[in-house]
């Protein structure tokens, strides 16, 4: 489970990665857990609204620092 978390966070090293992929071929619990977590991560990235900073704010900030 520790390695699973490292995998999800892109922090596993090569040996851990190899162990993990070998393990999920045999363990359906870890396999489905990994997939669900990956899916949630994808959802967060894809579906959360990304706001553009209001243009006047960027201009205000820029003006303040060059004053």
């Amino acid at each position: 489970m520790g390695i699973l978390n490292l995998m999800l966070d892109d922090e596993a090293d090569e040996a851990q990665e190899e162990f993990f992929f070998d393990h999920i071929e045999k363990c359906i619990i870890c396999f489905s857990h990994y997939n669900v977590e990956k899916q949630i991560r994808e959802l967060l990235k894809r579906k959360l609204q990304k706001r553009k900073v209001p243009t006047e704010l960027a201009i205000d900030i820029r003006n303040k620092i060059v004053q």
């Binding site: 899916q39 949630i40 579906k47 959360l48």
Partner: peptide, 13 residues
Amino acid sequence: METTKDMIGDEIS
């Protein structure tokens, strides 16, 4: 997995 794909931005948010 099959449930998450139908979720919309508001629910995630």
